[in-house]
Every structure is written in structure tokens, then in C-alpha cells.
Amino acid sequence: MAYEFDFQSVLAYAPMFLQGAWTTLILTFWATLAGFVLGTLCAVARTGGPRWLRLLVGGYVEVIRNTPLLIQAYFLIFGLASIGARMPIMLGVVIAMVVNIGSYTTEVMRAGIESIKRGQIEAAECLGLSRAQIFLHVVLRPAMERVYPSLVSLYVLLMLGSSVLSAVGVEELFGVSNRVQSVTYRNFEVFIVLGVIYLAMTLVLRGVFWALGQLIFPRRRRLGTAL
């Protein structure tokens, strides 16, 4: 007997899906923002900091990059709860995401910073720019422009990967879909709908990052090529 698809009863929960999708985007937004700052600071520390700091950041990056996000989230959120440190689940999840994405950002930004040629820095020194000015205008800006596509991939993957955080109880897109499954029993249809929504969110996110890139990198806007 052929299976009868029933999307009707699943789509009746459209507002819930939308709410969940919005939560996913909010989580991704804050985690991306804070993760970028953390990763950039760590990249700076790792390229120019004192030895102990380089080792510390290196350790952080290796530990996070070689363990799954889900284990990190369990460790952090269930762990903190077990010692009585209560916090809103959204905050806990964002912290887990930031710790996670910060390590990947560190490596990408480090590659960007290391791609800046010695001669560029020397030229800026000779023009009399201070160390901070050189770092900001001659190192960080072009480094970021150069690795921007890699960063975008990271943050899109983060959005997709955040689905596993439903396991710690956050009601993001995947989390709400569990509820829809348990009322409709239309598991497969729910997953199809989820797939479509996530795919659409991937496209939207890429579009937003593209537009952001056009906005903050004038060279890219004018020439349309990667630095």
C-alpha cells in the first residue's frame, strides 16, 4: 500500500515552525557576533601574544575542534546546572555556541592574519603608523576580507549545527518540531518541512552575509573578486 503524505496537519503548525526558526536565527546571530569577537581576540593572542597565552589559546582551539558540539553543550549546560549555576537556557546555549565557534574563528582569522606579508607591516611602520593602527588598518581589515568566505561557511554551519542543541532543551527550530511530531505522528513530513525551512534559512543567511560583505568591503563591491 502506498504511503499517503499528509502535509496538511503538519503545516497547521506553521506559526510554531516560524517561531522556532526565529529562535534559531537569534541564537546564530548572537553566537556569530560574540564568536567572531572571541575568535579574533584569540587569533591576535595566538599570533602575537606571549608564549603562555599562545599555548593557552592553542589548547582551547584544539580541545574544542576535536570534540563534538553536543558533548560540549552537555558538559557546559548540564555541568553548570549540576553545580547549581542556573541560567536561562537561551544564554547557556549561546555560551556553548560561542565557545564552539570561537575556536573555529580563531583558526580562520589566524590564517588571515598570517597571510599578511611582512612588507605590508614594514611599509606601514615607515609611514609612522602606531602598532595598534597597523594592526587595525593594515592587518585586520585585509585579513578579514581575505577569509570572509570561510567565515561565512563557518557561521552557516553553526546555524545548521545548532539543531543538535534541541537536546539540551532549547526550543529552536528542531526543538519545536519534536513537539509537532509528538502531536501529529507525521514524522517524515515534519522532517521534510524542516529540511525545506533549513535550506531556505541557509540561502537567506548566505544572502545576508553576501550583502554584509558588499557593505563592509568596498573593494569587493567594486571589483567583485576575492582579495
Binding site: 545548521l160 549545527g161 539543531s163 543538535v164 528542531f174 514524522n187 517524515f188 515534519v190 522532517f191 521534510i192 524542516l194 529540511g195 533549513y198 535550506l199 541557509t202 540561502l203
Partner: peptide
């Protein structure tokens, strides 16, 4: 398949 989460692929 790069645009939807692995978790959703698991469900499918």
C-alpha cells in the same frame, strides 16, 4: 545536503 542539518538528514 550542505544546506540542511545532519540531524534532519538523520530523521529522513
Amino acid at each position: 545536503f550542505q544546506g540542511i542539518p545532519l540531524l534532519v538528514q538523520m530523521g529522513l
